[in-house]
Each structure stands twice: as structure tokens, then as C-alpha cells.
Write a protein that binds this DNA or RNA. Structure first.
Lengths: 217, 217
DNA sequence: CTGCGTATACTCGCATACGAGTATCAGGAT
DNA sequence: ATCCTGATACTCGTATGCGAGTATACGCAG
């Protein structure tokens, strides 16, 4: 199960997998990660870099090798990965790979409250989303094809995964939209006039309590 | 584009969409959300409830109606949604629905560094993931079928979406696993003996720099 | 009627997270 | 020669986020 890591920030994973090559100072890690396109795989906040590195050190995953004062530059502290760090990295990856972690995309949260908006507005918002998704996916697909020419598959799995998921999102959204537009979506009428008249048509509220309390007296 | 919200925590969205029914004190919001299964749609941390509610008030999205001291209980502050709050809620939902937001699942991050582990281990980890995913999805699918009996579609879209995405994840994982097991995955040999012998077979490092610097002199 | 487990209804404080700021230097433009 | 721009290499302060703790009431077993 998704263990409570000493350092939980995903930036920590990126750092560990970067210093594993050779000792480095934080800024160099940052540049390397950027160069390798790591910032496309995880949302990296550069403000957190030094905090995360310090924490990794505090927990014994990194250690200071050197502290070079190189004429210029304030002072660059060079870190090296420790054996514990290597073990932590491997373990972290193992955990992430083996345990599917029900993350909740914001879109899902939005869907769960979309009844707040009138159905026609939701329809047009979804149409907009669909358009954006389509162009983004097209771009991604092309970028991937491009990369495939000179980068081995091994370094493209994340991109392939991402693409597959977004395509599924696209397909799902499209099918929902179809139902809304064609009127085959079941509760449309109900939904619409709960918005045109005042609020909640009595028992809707109750119905929304879906299977929350499995069985009660 | 994903606007910077005054209150960014998704718990805020849940709170707003809950108090829209009627004024309430925080704990009541929490119970209602739980009863409605909101905690299945967004990861709710109860420790944040009071902070988030206070912030919503600070920004004028909620206001205090009453402060009941009901014999028992320390004191329950009752909040009501304001017009600004209603507008914020609608706007927030609009934004979330219309703008696809490239979130980065942890699994993607893990894939991007999975070369750190030897291929055979990755294979067995993925097999484990596949098993877990399969049973979880089966459960979800059944729960959904169950719900459909007495809950209108309108309140199940999130669940349907979630299921669709997970199914896509399953399919993708299965196909990768197949390639690894059958040996059709291209870089297998390379990957394997970079692990058996020491490190990095010279030019792998360079190859990992995928399309980062589009064109340089 | 007394003890005690469990739900209710919070509070507190530390640990991050990260935006925004700062200072220094290299190299080209003027 | 000097100015300016952009990259380099960080630091700091504030705003959360949230785990863990607390205190009170209620039901009910003994």
C-alpha cells in the first residue's frame, strides 16, 4: 500500500533518479531534469527544489560531498546519493508501479457537482473541452511520432501512457456529449426544469445519496 | 486557463456545492458530504475543513449567519453561501469542465524512471498492478451497476468517468506487459545488460534527452 | 447510577510548498 | 567602456495542508 514516504514530494523522486548518475549540486539537477524533459512527466515547482534536497539529506538519502566556492556563484553544495537513497528510490518506484493509486482528477470532482449548472451550459462547456482535448492530443501524438525516430521506446513509455489515457478521456467525453446533444441522456428533463423553476425537485436530494450508507435500520 | 483561485483546495468546491442547499455549520457539511459519497470523488482531508471554510469566508464566498451555542457542543458557527460564493462556484465548475488540465498521475512519473529497475522486476511489478486493477475495477463496475438501480444517471457520471479511465489504464498496462513478456518490447536486451553489467551503456544517457532542446547550433 | 466506549465537533502546531524576490556574472549590443 | 539582458544559483516568507490530539455528550451494559 502507498507507504508514507519520508519525503513525499514527487520532485524527490526526480531528484533521486537524477543524482544516481553522479554527484551534483541542486541547480545542476534542475537543469538536467529540464534537459531530459522530466518536467513533462511530473509537475515540478522549482521553489521546492532546495527544500526537497535538504529533506532528502536530512533523511539520509543524499549526503554532501563537497562545497565548492567557484570564484563566482554564492557557493554550490554538491550532493551524492547514499545507499539508503538508492534503496529508497528503488522502493518508491516499486511501490508506484505495483500499486494502482486511485487519484482523483479534478475533472471527476467537477463532474460530481456539474448539476449545479444548467444542462445546456454543461453541454457547451464539454464541447469546448472536447475541442481543446482534440488539438492537444493531435500535438502530443505528433511529438511522440517525432521522438520515436531517435529515442528508444524505453524512454517513451510515459508519453505513450499519457497519450492513451487522454485518448480514453476524449472518447468518454465525446460519448457523454453525444447523449446530451441527442437528448438520450435520461435525466435531462428533470435536470432542466429543476433549473428553470427554483431548486431541488423534492426527492432529488435524497436520490443523490448514492449507496453511501449500505444498509440502515 | 486554469485560473488561480482564491481558495484552491478542492475541498472548497465540495463545501460550496454543499452549503448551496442551506446554511450549515462545518461539521454538518462534512457529514453531508460523507453521506453523499463526495469523499469518493475528491480526496477530502478533514483536518483542512475548518481552514478551508475560514478561507472561503475571508474571501467573501461564505458568511456567518449565526453562532449557536446549543447547550452541548463548544459552539457551532453557521455559514451561508453568498452571491459571490455562488458565482465562484459556478465559475470554478465551468473552468474545470471546459479546460482539460494535464494532471500528472504518479504512475506516469514512475514509468518515466522505471529504467532504474531491471526489466524483469518491472515486469513482475506490472503484473501485480494488473491484478489489483482488475479486481478493483470489477468491484467498481458492480457497485456502479448496483447504484444505477435507484440513482439517476445525473449523479453517476463521475463514477462512469472514473471507471472508463481505469479501464483504459488497465488496457494500456496489459498491452505493455504483453510486450515485455513476449519479448517484443524493443529495447529489452539493451535495458537488461545495462543492469547486468555496470551502468549506462555510453550513449543511453544522451538518448534520454528526448526532444528537450528542439534545435540547437 | 456509574462507568466507558463511541460519535461528535472541533483545535493546534508543525511541516511543507512554492511564488516572488535577490544577487551575481557572462556575453552581446551600443 | 558601459549598459542591458538573460541565465545562473539560490533565499525567504507566507499560506496552506493536514495528522494528531482534545473535550464533551450520549447511549447502554452492568
Amino acid at each position: 500500500m502507498a507507504e508514507r514516504r519520508k519525503v513525499n514530494n514527487m520532485l524527490g523522486l526526480a531528484v533521486l533518479s537524477t543524482v544516481i548518475d553522479r554527484p551534483m549540486h541542486p541547480y545542476e539537477m534542475a537543469s538536467l531534469m529540464r534537459a531530459r524533459g522530466k518536467d513533462r512527466d511530473m509537475r515540478i515547482k522549482w521553489g521546492s527544489l532546495y527544500t526537497v534536497v535538504r529533506n532528502l539529506e536530512k533523511h539520509g538519502f543524499l549526503e554532501v560531498t563537497d562545497s565548492v566556492r567557484d570564484s563566482a556563484h554564492p557557493e554550490r553544495t554538491i550532493y551524492r546519493i547514499t545507499d539508503t537513497g538508492r534503496e529508497e528510490l528503488a522502493d518508491w518506484i516499486r511501490d508506484l508501479l505495483a500499486t494502482p493509486d486511485r487519484e482523483q482528477p479534478k475533472f471527476e470532482a467537477a463532474l460530481s457537482v456539474c448539476g449545479v449548472l444548467p444542462p445546456d451550459e454543461v453541454t457547451s462547456l464539454l464541447r469546448r473541452r472536447l475541442d481543446l482535448l482534440e488539438t492537444e492530443i493531435a500535438e502530443q501524438r505528433e511529438a511522440l511520432a517525432e521522438s520515436r525516430r531517435d529515442v528508444p521506446r524505453l524512454f517513451l513509455v510515459e508519453a505513450e501512457y499519457d497519450l492513451a489515457i487522454r485518448e480514453a478521456e476524449l472518447a468518454w467525453t465525446r460519448s457523454l456529449l453525444d447523449e446530451l446533444v441527442s437528448g438520450t441522456f435520461p435525466d435531462l428533463a428533470l435536470w432542466r426544469d429543476w433549473h428553470e423553476t427554483g431548486r431541488k425537485p423534492s426527492e432529488i436530494a435524497k436520490l443523490a445519496e448514492r449507496g453511501a450508507t449500505p444498509a440502515e435500520p
